[in-house]
Structures are given as structure tokens and as C-alpha cells.
């Protein structure tokens, strides 16, 4: 996403469905963001990111132990991609990106998550 006014394209990788619908609804309420796809497993995610123009992947929930392999794979192939993982163990979110260290979103409210996405893309 090079244009600062362009829509941020988001891919959702979230289960269960109710949580996925909630996150999708939150994204849809952001004027500058759009959900371009939803996937249910890592293989689907790798394929979808390859096929579609994706700026951000939101994965929720996931158990965080070090840098998840899915992030390593995705960032290797798509260095401009930003990945948000919402932890299943604690109320924490993590932003993974290839050009900066992992950013922890300690209090991942809707606003905090979307602000982190915007900052990471527009820096």
C-alpha cells in the first residue's frame, strides 16, 4: 500500500466463526479498511495472500510461543505485509513486520489494533 489514502486490504484468519464475524464487522466500520478475504487454516492463508493484494493479515486467536512459523513464511515471501496476531492466552496482540521488531499491543482494543495497523503502514 503505497498511497497514504488508499484502502488497507485485510485478510482474516480467524476462528471460531463468531469471532471472525466480530473482527470483520470491526474492520468494516473503519473507513480506510476493507476485508478482502477470510481463511480458516494456514495453507489457505498462504495461498490467499499470494493470490490477493493484501496489506494486513489478522490472525486470531493463536497461542504465541516465539515468532510463529506462519509469520516467518509470510514475511519472507511478502516483506511489506503486516501481521497482527491476537493471543489466545492473554489479552495481548502482536504486530509482526519484516522491517521492525515485533510490536506488542498490550491492551488490544479495537482502536488500539487498528491504530497500530495504520501506524505501521504509514510510517
Amino acid at each position: 500500500m503505497n498511497n497514504k489514502n488508499a484502502t488497507i486490504h485485510i485478510m482474516l484468519a480467524s476462528r471460531p466463526k463468531m469471532l471472525s464475524e466480530v473482527i470483520k464487522s470491526m474492520v468494516e466500520h473503519q473507513p480506510d479498511m476493507e476485508v478482502v478475504g477470510e481463511v480458516l487454516d494456514p495453507i489457505e492463508l498462504l495461498t490467499a495472500v499470494k493470490m490477493l493484494s493484501v496489506d494486513v493479515v489478522i490472525i486470531a486467536p493463536m497461542e504465541i510461543k516465539g515468532e510463529p512459523r506462519i509469520c516467518v513464511h509470510l514475511l519472507e515471501k511478502h516483506p511489506l505485509l503486516k501481521i497482527i496476531i491476537l493471543s489466545s492466552e492473554s489479552e495481548a496482540g502482536f504486530l509482526y513486520q519484516s522491517d521492525a521488531p515485533v510490536l506488542q499491543i498490550k491492551d488490544p482494543t479495537e482502536q488500539a489494533v487498528f491504530d497500530a495497523i495504520r501506524r505501521s503502514l504509514r510510517k
Partner: peptide
């Protein structure tokens, strides 16, 4: 206990005229 789900449901339910969320807990 899932904050995102909890808060998200509250927000989504705001659009339902016949339901009002009077409280929530983690």
C-alpha cells in the same frame, strides 16, 4: 474472557433495536 469477542458483540448488538447490553464481564 475473549475481549475482542466480548467488545465486538457489544458493538454489533448496538445495531439490534430490541436488544440492549446492560453489562459485560471477562
Amino acid at each position: 474472557d475473549n475481549r475482542l469477542l466480548r467488545e465486538g458483540l457489544v458493538t454489533m448488538l448496538l445495531e439490534q433495536d430490541d436488544i440492549v447490553v446492560i453489562g459485560k464481564a471477562p
